[in-house]
Design a protein around this nucleic acid. Structure first.
Length: 487
RNA sequence: GGCCCCAUCGUCUAACGGUCAGGACACCACUCUUUCAAGGUGGGAACACGGGUUCGAUUCCCGUUGGGGCCA
């Protein structure tokens, strides 16, 4: 057999959404395949009939696609291979590496009670393995139900884990594994091994939580005379409280982050850094960078806490370095979702440009764009409210002064430079500071004390809308200068 | 309870026997500025504990403690 290229797989159960932990496992597999020129197989483990749904499968595919992870084979469905799983189980039976067990659930429970006095772990005593062949025949003739059990070798089972180094278990600590149920459906560990052998998987990159399955699976590989793949067990992702990340920690599905306005490139970058590092002080990495730098050796042994704040920071980095043109489509989508009318055009690119450096998510960008399109809709945020409170009557007074000043600028001269000049002159005349006049304008227009420079803000919003809004907020009851006025 | 895995700032991490233990997020100052962000500069902040091995341990070995996973 010639040296084969690496083949890895991501094998999610379609019983829920694509969890960030699963997404990261998929990412590592994908990175490894792309790095080594190998193949990435997507296998849907849909053998849990109760909980598996096509909808969940679709959500998983969508999530992977969104993250930019493409697969070379699949999606393959484990349920399609049950016949092979059975054949493998029968093969083990035929070769004497497995045996029929007629013990019922009740009998097993009784055995457990009888043998585990202290806190000992119950292990099946192989009584059915000692049944004389004639007895086995007789029971089968009577139609007694049975499972097929794999006879676990009582020896050390160890492997060189690509992230943990040597891990070893003692075979006698492991139970004789049921591989086929009485209804002839295969058990998880058999199905996985059977599939990985058939699909010629060379590297199993999966979550830490599978470490205890690994010795059982290795025993099966050996019994089935198949080469044992390389195992790489990547650490779990935890919530802020140090417990396995779950629903009660908030958003755990990649779809949640998609809807919060996180960019796929940022999500991918962030996920890659959870439990892996390139070994140098690099944080912002493109897909190409990640592929170039990825290695199984760089994977961390200890679990990582998922920090949404850092994710948002990273997303902000991507946002501010991204050309506004690329953000137009996603922002328009958000605006649609918010029910904001936007002439759909390129007109909003400059607005996006003005706000993206101040934003952490696409949602942030969209909210700010919305306010610029329609200043009247701005509610006050925390900081804005505080400023209005602090200024008292001065707030409205400043706005009226600003409106009077700005009304003197004709439509044709409504540009940042001209606007700033006028405001400056007014401030000098009144003997106030520039901030005293500009900050109220900012709050009136955006509801917040955060925005691009006020003169640019005014220019983006447009003369008519700006004056109208200042009039409303200033309490003069209406537009001081409607469209076309002021000339 | 059994088996297994793990342990550097609050969090993500670098270090592969000799470093003032480095970077990033967050936080705090200062700076820039037309406010707030962003940017820039600086600051506080970690080797879980105890034994070994070694001239020398964050690093290697053992144990303790703590956390996690799987099974029960």
């Amino acid at each position: 057999m010639f040296a084969s290229i690496p083949r890895v797989r991501f094998a999610p159960s379609p019983t829920g959404y694509l969890h960030v932990g699963g997404a990261r496992t998929a990412l590592f597999n994908w990175l490894y395949a792309r790095k080594t020129g190998g193949r990435f197989i997507l296998r849907i483990e849909d053998t849990d009939q109760e909980r598996s749904t096509p909808e969940h499968t679709q959500v998983i595919l969508d999530g992977l696609t969104w993250l930019g992870l493409d697969w070379d084979f699949g999606p393959l469905f484990q349920g399609d291979f049950v016949e092979r799983h059975r054949a493998d189980a029968e093969g083990l039976l035929a070769s004497g590496k497995a045996y029929r067990c007629f013990c019922t659930r009740e009998e097993l429970e009784a055995q457990r009670k009888a043998t585990t006095h202290g806190g000992e772990t119950f292990r099946y005593d192989r009584r059915c393995d000692r049944l004389p062949p004639a007895e086995v025949e007789a029971r089968m003739a009577r139609g007694m139900p049975f499972v097929i059990r794999f006879r676990m070798p009582h020896e050390e089972i160890a492997w060189e884990d690509a992230v943990h180094g040597r891990i070893s278990f003692q075979g006698h600590d492991l139970d004789d594994l049921v591989i086929l149920r009485t209804d002839r459906t295969p058990i998880y560990n058999l199905a996985v091994v059977s599939d990985d052998i058939a699909m010629r998987v060379t590297h199993v990159i999966r979550g830490d939580d599978h470490i205890s399955n690994t010795p059982k699976q290795i025993a099966l590989y050996r019994a089935l005379d198949a080469p044992v793949p390389v195992f790489a067990h990547v650490p779990m992702i935890l919530g802020a409280d140090g417990k396995k990340l779950s629903k009660r920690h908030g958003a755990t599905a990649v779809g949640d982050y998609q809807h919060q306005g996180i960019l796929p490139a940022a999500m991918r970058n962030f996920l890659a850094l959870l439990g892996w590092s390139p070994g140098e002080d690099r944080e912002i990495m493109s897909g190409e960078d990640l592929i170039a730098l990825f290695s199984l050796e760089g994977i961390q042994k200890k679990p990582a806490v998922f920090d949404p704040v850092k994710l948002e920071w990273m997303n902000g980095q991507y946002l501010s370095h991204m050309p506004a043109a690329e953000l137009v489509a996603p922002v328009l989508l958000e605006l649609d979702g918010m029910g904001i009318a936007h002439g759909g055009g390129d007109g909003i690119a400059p607005v996006i440009d003005a706000v993206k450096a101040r934003s952490r998510t696409i949602l942030d960008v969209a909210r700010q764009v919305a306010v610029r399109l329609d200043p009247g809709r701005a509610g006050l945020d925390e900081k804005g409210r505080k400023l209005v409170e602090k200024m008292g009557d001065g707030y409205a007074r400043s706005l009226r002064l600003a409106a009077d000043t700005l009304r003197g600028i004709p439509e044709g001269e409504w540009v940042p430079g001209r606007i700033l000049e006028a405001l400056r002159r007014q401030v000098e005349h009144e003997g106030m500071s520039l901030g005293d006049l500009l900050q109220p304008i900012r709050v009136a227009l955006t509801g917040s004390t955060v925005s691009e420079p006020v003169n640019e803000l005014l220019a983006v919003v447009g003369r008519a809308k700006a004056l109208e809004r200042l009039g409303e907020a200033g309490g003069t009851g209406g537009a001081g200068g409607g469209p076309g006025a002021g000339r």
